[in-house]
Amino acid sequence: MIYIIEDDKIMAECIAKACKDYETKIFSNAIEAMANIDQNMPGLIFLDILLSGPDGFTFLNELASYSDTAKIPVVIISSLNLKDQDLSEYGVVGKLNKDTMYPKEITAYAKRFADQSLHSSSH
């Protein structure tokens, strides 16, 4: 399962299309995503930063504060320039810029991390 937390529905759908071989769930805000996480732990999260309500950084903090969710890999998808920021302690495994990213980059992250979580959960 891949979570896509993005408040622009069209952008969220574009990301979901790039992950078409995986089960995805779209959330338009961080609160909804956090509320669902216990029932359905994602193998990967694509996270926008500028969200309505709590922003992506608040979500990352929340995620990092629980032992189980701290392990979920997160890929930030934002138009903010975050390339020089080290967010690895929040589980951030990648950053994509909305203005320049390609669907194949999204697919590559899905393949790498969502597949990995499938394998680790089957053991």
Partner: peptide, 18 residues
Amino acid sequence: LKAPMSLIRQLALSLDLE
């Protein structure tokens, strides 16, 4: 104004996937 341009670009790129 950059936001819709990014969207249009992503949509155009996603045409290949559909």
